[in-house]
Design a protein around this nucleic acid. Structure first.
Lengths: 212, 212
DNA sequence: ACCGTACCGTACCGTACGTTACGGTTGGTT
DNA sequence: AACCAACCGTAACGTACGGTACGGTACGGT
């Protein structure tokens, strides 16, 4: 191993990453009917290795979700030159990024399996798919957006009491019924132009609601 | 049979309704790990009857979802004396009703199983759980809200181009991240006062965005 | 009294899949 | 060369569960 300094970290070998990518692809194609055998076959590895590396089926699913989550890290926002245009650009980019992720096949598949799992007890085990998705989805978005909102307020461009409330309203304006419709299997293509249009609209509406 | 005139209709006997209520309760408790045997035991009926009445497991699930859907019919809005207050009352009541339903255990359980099902191919079979939930959830809400919005515009209280777009914004302002968080298993209690507060807030925000 | 219908309870079957076990191959170390 | 660890492929095991079959009971009609 190269750097084993982290405390209790992933430390995935390349081989294991390949396996997780295979599992991810399978999850997108086949949903939760993904089977250990199918993953082994797809990744050209033995089931024994799967069990050695990931413990059991849940461990594999968890590792897969975390692996995908580790791939989508957001980009921060620079603090200097923060004026109204910068705020608008920032919000629009957030909204568009979010819609793009949300409507992607991978996100839909992952959210589906996490929702499915959230129904079957055995929560609290910190290996909790729903928690992981929540943590890397809405919550991560909130954390990333919060500094932007605070900067906006600091600069006198926004007015709100709690950043959390403001974020959740922005979330609603951006996502609307898109996610639930996709999760429920509604055919719903979101073109790039539609995404950008929606991002602009949500941002405009947000600015109206939270203008000083 | 009493009246076999309908083409392909529900025509549930009382006994069958009892069974579906049992299935519903089980679905709330156990999620999708509901098994034919458990339903039979809970409802004190034989598996043979389950298969005779509902065909197979999917048929039972579909019937259960439809049965629940048939129970929550909305109340219409009267057309006369439609002023600004009536509009506000109407919107707030819609929002509060919706939040109440949405955050209920039954709704969460049903949406979970529908999302799970939406991942497993065999769509398009018109016996489509996702479609049913969508139809009786967001789409039904849209149909119920549309006349209110149109009345509001007619009365010069609202300004919008497409009622659908306006509805979806209202949806976003009301639901925000509540539903996805609940579906993903986030502990999130929504008290009655919180519901009413949120309904008011969403309505206010909506009126600001769509004022003439 | 006899029969048909509808139903309950339960035993049973087939299969899919999670999990384990094992024999064989490869590649690096001594 | 000998050895060992890691891994592949596959066969096998156990079980949960969807689906079916069948015997037994209650009841209304004739």
């Amino acid at each position: 191993m190269k750097s084993d300094l982290e405390i209790s970290e992933t430390a995935l070998t390349e081989r294991q990453k390949d396996v997780l990518d295979a599992a991810l692809a399978l999850l997108v194609e086949a949903g939760d009917k993904l089977t250990m055998t199918s993953v082994a076959r797809r990744a050209s590895c033995s089931k024994e290795s799967l069990y050695k590396w990931f413990g059991d089926r849940d461990g594999l699913l968890t590792a897969t979700v975390q692996w995908q989550a580790s791939k989508v890290r957001g980009v921060p926002v620079s603090r200097d030159a923060f004026d109204r245009d910068a705020l608008i650009i920032g919000l629009e980019r957030f909204a568009a990024d979010w819609l793009r992720v949300l409507s992607g096949k991978i996100s839909v598949a992952l959210n589906r399996v996490a929702v499915t799992h959230a129904g079957t007890d055995k929560h609290e085990l910190d290996r909790d798919l729903g928690g992981i998705v929540l943590e890397n989805g809405p919550f991560a978005m909130a954390r990333r957006l919060e500094p932007v909102l605070l900067l906006g307020r600091e600069a006198g461009l926004l007015k709100f009491e709690h950043a959390d409330e403001a974020f959740r309203t922005f979330f609603g304006l951006v996502v609307r019924d898109v996610q639930i419709r996709l999760l429920l299997g509604d055919r719903y293509e979101l073109s790039e132009t539609a995404i950008e249009r929606d991002a602009k609209r949500a941002t405009e509406q947000f600015l109206i609601l939270y203008k000083p």
